[in-house]
Design a protein around this nucleic acid. Structure first.
Lengths: 351, 351
DNA sequence: CAAAAAATGATAGGCGTATATCATTCCAGT
DNA sequence: ACTGGAATGATATACGCCTATCATTTTTTG
């Protein structure tokens, strides 16, 4: 049960040097003769020594301080993400990382920049933000990094910034995935896809649309996009009008938010409904999937995103080298492979 | 950067008791007056004290010893899983957990039981095994647990055993998911699905088939199953014969292994091919997906499984209560949302 | 060969927790 | 008031690593 693992003292003894010298080698303090370095290295290999991080962290008394900034509002997706961050914050405290979750006015780059500047004075180790396309944000990120603060963008990147990593899905991939599934559902039959976006000027949505176009071929065509401004009432009106105007539409792909409106339209539809693919597993999309009102939900796994952000920031704070950011792959949910619904104990809401 | 978090000494001071008493409270040693307990608890709340696990682990000098037993053979899926375990073993050593990965003759319950008995003598904290349906295995698990050794089953459960947890997908769910996607691909059109299994007597495969049947309705029907014994040559011959005999077949669902054979048949097929859904993302299924020879791969995320196994075993060893086993949901891959191919540095193989 | 420079050894204190021992104080029951 | 047991305090050691200091030895250099 409790064998002992070799310590650095064991290494030193085995290498025939003092503890101090072994320490100089493993912590790269320099001032050690080449032959001693080699002997210590050999001893490490022979004994299979690995540094005890618990002891190391303890001795250094290191406390990581991170912050995550999310857009405010009642958006279901960010609500879910916020809950995930707060849950992570609690369990991370035992490992000496203090994570504060803050919100900032959505779609307001200036507010975000002000918040970042405040955090910079607050001696923090790393920050996660939901990016936006503004140059001022890119500059603020540059300033933070100049102070040695790690910065990762989450869900949405900040183009032209030198953030340490982007943690999120590739939206072109997401759009292609949607397109593939829609094509599969048509099985070679002709069809017309109605794309719904928040705004064509939003980079994320444009990328998803581009991905969709990459895949759509053969006798599938695209109807003109609807811009729903991520608001369910506008989406509802737009989709209802489009479906009425064009009976040839066989599929709807919603790249943005406001899908409660889309779902209402589908629910009220007489006869066979089109194939519906949309993004993000949130309470209303989950219910719609379970009810058979929609076919596919493409999710960007905020759980995984949150975990990666924290790991990445910690790695940066330790100066363990740059983050190697494997992209998060969009996950496909149908009615049958939904994850178990988790009830948020605080709000009582179902996720 | 380096504020200090409250320690147990701080708590004691705040509560107006000695360190010893505070310790008696947090470690539930008993012999403390009710009012002292309350004062210490209040101090903990007020200061937001959380135990420093690094220090705790250090002081206990705890070393976790775990073993994972996988079936031998050249199966691509278990090869992938094995690589994952070995990678995890390396990085876990820094956290004082020693994980050994062993193989045992596949489909040989007696060999597995012998190995388990040997491990039981070897003062180990936890074991992960790929379950099988044999009573003797269930008994061996009971014996291990009687000795206080944690046991989790992986990929395949051991019915009737009192293992601490099963980490893997629900195969009925997986089958339903496959069925849903096949139904989607038919878009209401008529069709006939050819199921391919390793053996009908294998519980996992039977469950997947049952899940498929749950979903298939309307003008979709099932052809008689092919038993491919998980061998690609047998699968190849069987599928080729079935497709030739029944031109009505519009889809193939392979619940087991040996899919290289299935892929070869599809590749050689003239004209339009059926919809193909199969399990496990391994090099050959990945290539087939990329080449457009198959439509869907349902994967049980061995990465996640391995991570959960280790977390779970550690939790058991700490006696932090029973494992709360959220099921792993099967993941759907199409050509477009494949994760980046990772090259195994040792074998040079692509995963 | 002496002096300077480089390398090494010896050792101590601290990080926060776990655990143990022993002395002391408190209070109930007689 | 005395006794016995419960509750509490004081304190020491160990865990493995980091950091620092100072003395000593070895090597290099002029």
């Amino acid at each position: 049960m409790d064998r002992r693992l070799p310590t650095l003292s064991d290494v030193a003894r085995r290498a025939g040097v003092s503890y101090a010298t072994a320490d100089r080698v493993v912590n790269a303090r320099g001032g050690v003769a080449e032959k001693s370095v080699l002997r210590v290295r050999a001893a490490i290999r022979d004994l299979g020594y690995v540094r005890n991080v618990a002891a190391a962290n303890l001795s250094q008394g290191r406390l990581y301080r991170f912050a995550a900034i999310l857009p405010n509002g009642t958006n279901a997706f960010f609500g879910r993400m916020r809950a995930l961050f707060e849950g992570a914050a609690r369990s991370l405290l035992t490992e000496r990382v203090e994570l504060t979750v803050e919100t900032v006015e959505a779609f307001d780059p200036a507010a975000l920049v002000r918040r970042l500047e405040k955090l910079a004075e607050d001696c923090i180790d790393g920050i996660a933000i939901v990016g936006s396309d503004a140059d001022e944000v890119a500059e603020a990120i540059g300033a933070l990094r100049g102070q040695g603060i790690g910065v990762v963008t989450l869900v949405s990147d900040v183009p032209g910034s030198d953030r340490d990593a982007y943690v999120g899905i590739d939206n072109v991939v997401a759009g292609r995935t949607a397109g593939r599934l829609i094509a599969l559902a048509h099985g070679g039959q002709a069809g017309r896809i109605l794309p719904v976006v928040g705004a064509l000027s939003a980079r994320d949505h444009a990328e998803r649309l581009a991905g969709l176009r990459d895949v759509v071929a053969g006798n599938l065509s695209l109807a003109p996009e609807i811009e729903g401004r991520d608001r369910h009432d506008i989406v509802e009106a737009g989709v209802a009008r489009a479906l009425k105007a064009d009976p040839e539409i066989t599929a709807v792909y919603s790249a943005g938010a406001g899908n409660a409106g889309l779902i209402r339209v589908v629910e009220a539809l007489p006869g066979t409904r089109p194939v519906v693919v949309l993004h993000e597993l949130v309470p209303h999309s989950r219910r719609a999937l379970e009810a058979g009102l929609i076919d596919i939900v493409i999710d960007q796994r905020p759980e995984e995103g949150v975990a990666r952000v924290i790991d990445g920031l910690r790695q940066l704070a330790d100066r363990r080298g740059p983050i190697i950011a494997e992209p998060i792959v969009p996950t496909i949910y149908v009615r049958e492979n939904l994850p178990p619904a988790s009830n948020d104990p605080e709000t009582g809401k179902t996720t």
